[in-house]
Nucleic acid binder design. Sequence first.
DNA 1: CGAAAACTTGATTAGCATCAAACCAGGTGG
DNA 2: CCACCTGGTTTGATGCTAATCAAGTTTTCG
Lengths: 258, 258
Amino acid sequence: MTTRTVNRSQPEFPHGRVVPVHVAAPVAANLQAQACMACGVRPFALFGSLSEDALASIGYRIDDLRLSPGQLAFHARASSHLVYTVRAGVVRLERVSDAGDRRIVRLAGRGDVIGLEALLGQTYAADAVACTEVQVCVMPRALLEDLSSRNPDFALALMKRWQRALDEADEWLTELTCGPAYQRMLRLLLKLSEHGEEAGSIWLPTRHEMGAMLNITMETASRVVSSVRRAGILIETDGRYARLDAAKLLQALRLGRG
Amino acid sequence: MTTRTVNRSQPEFPHGRVVPVHVAAPVAANLQAQACMACGVRPFALFGSLSEDALASIGYRIDDLRLSPGQLAFHARASSHLVYTVRAGVVRLERVSDAGDRRIVRLAGRGDVIGLEALLGQTYAADAVACTEVQVCVMPRALLEDLSSRNPDFALALMKRWQRALDEADEWLTELTCGPAYQRMLRLLLKLSEHGEEAGSIWLPTRHEMGAMLNITMETASRVVSSVRRAGILIETDGRYARLDAAKLLQALRLGRG
DNA sequence: CGAAAACTTGATTAGCATCAAACCAGGTGG
DNA sequence: CCACCTGGTTTGATGCTAATCAAGTTTTCG
């Protein structure tokens, strides 16, 4: 029988370089605390639940790391003791199936935590690749263990992160893999608008990435994007970024349901 | 545009009845401890990490519940304070997409925990439906909170459960939604063999269920099953159960890759 | 400016959905 | 006991969606 594996011909996305991560170094505790306190995403992020006192007790250095598109924060099966919080930009989590297909299984944006499995001593379950210019902070496992043993709320916050990832995964499966390509694309656009930048401008994946998310070829992705653009749902497309007409998008999705 | 939503015409699986769950009642602590201690799945299950002392301290009643095929342990969006451990049988977790498609997003078998989200005060994310005769034990949220606050290992065990569910979800996405129907079916059979009963006999889903797992119609599922049977991979199919030739299955999967 | 990537577009085909009809239990009631 | 129904299954004929193959075009970047 013939194999119709999507993306088989392009075994890898381009720019797949791993970025060296600095080894955590000792730092004055209050210095780190001040940095975290001032962090713009703290309210949405893992440390949002921590009191100022708890923050002040942080005795570990948290690195701030920048990635450009295509660079990896970590890669699947690597063992490490680092957990990441996305401060800006969009990161994709992708896996290679037994059959060799590369599929994107989730997107992480501002405030999302990735690589939680490192906290359990497990290897990473997926590649984490920057889709845009990305800023992450790098937390050593020991820090999180420390905080959660000291602070009961924090353990809860961790569990909520896991549950959130699980919800995302299930939603991805039910929304982005069923129905015709055109509708899947609409739902993808809706999801991208969650990770949107300021002012309704969203990041547009490459056709190849779209294909790996929706399980279609990049040719089909291209055709469908054109048609979505023709429908006036996607406008003012400027390279990697675009604006979308939310009202029209929602209406198109509603029509699909009826 | 036309909508090609799989299973749209059958909005629900049959036998969708919710089973009333007994309210947790006070019980002599040592009685419950003895029951848990004697439980056949404890080594694989959540309480496997608990010492006998910790078990003895359990002050909550854990209900033992039996479900027949089609009955629900819980349903999506319901709010509750109950978490479940599967002691025997197979449970499917299914979700309805915005477009109205019903998809199975995971299977839970012996030793798996389902409904963890109740521990966070969230509503259930999916319907949990018995596929076979099922036996679950029903743990109130307060019990798990109690155990994890008292016992640091237990909190870790909980997190591992979440991570495991997440891994399963990601694997489901990468393995069961890519490639042609025949290969997806082979991979499904492989996964079913994980949940297999004794002696290499596996539970066979209905064609309709297979369709909801692999995102194909039940007609296609039927055709593919026939062809898998003709290939000698699936043998001695007796209604809901069958036996499979592991060697041939693995070889067929390998050929698919090459 | 030229080369490589990314994207677009067209023609053809494979795979699966759809529609439709028949088949086979297992159960019910006459 | 058989006629009958129901739910699951099988099988066939047909059409549509998206994959594949193959040029082109635009964009990016050294």
